[in-house]
Amino acid sequence: MGGNRQPCARRGYVAAAAECVVLAGVALLPGFALAHGAHAGDAGIAGGFMAGALHPLGGLDHLLAMVAVGIWGAFLGAPLIWVLPVAFPLIMVVGGILGVAELPLPYVETGIALSVLALGLAIALAWRAPRGLALALVGAFAVFHGYAHGAELPAAAQPAAYAAGFVIVTGLLHLAGIGIGYLAGSRRGTVALRTVGAGIAVAGVWILLGQPGLA
């Protein structure tokens, strides 16, 4: 029975992931619609949306941290499997508002690099942190990520469209992380996840050192 259940569950997650993509597709509608809109400057809105959507994918630090939050949440199990990815954006918006208001926040880039390193280590070491501590850690990192996004918003050509783009894609990255995190259900999967976590931690060190060898 157990053997039958797993493929069904996998099909369920694949279908659910496909529905998430449809959901995001609906949310992406303004981008496409505006590209052919009748309003002046609409192409700029579509461009702003796409710039925002591509931003979390273009920056390795944001991408790894978002996926790592989802993986670690899945690793820690209920209720943190959903509490961490839900708490992240809610606390991130505080940092975002600080960034939009152009209030100073020191060591933002360092904080973001540290978030990649710490989350990678937490996965690699299979650290079962207490709920409060896990939440506090992820919340602190969320403020740095939010600030970085928020500080870029006023400079964006179309801030609202930019915000919509990065919010949607970041949410999808969290869900991707949770999806990957379901591998923790098996022994081999746990080993694979811990290896991925070690890779993320190494990337965190590389980002912390200023990404040597890239330029």
Binding site: G12, W82, P89, L90, A163
Partner: peptide
């Protein structure tokens, strides 16, 4: 199929609105 996806997506609706 994936009830927690609704909670996660809901959190992003809140974040987007406040931003």
């Amino acid at each position: 199929r994936w009830p927690l996806a609704l909670r996660v997506a809901g959190a992003w609706i809140v974040a987007l609105s406040l931003l």
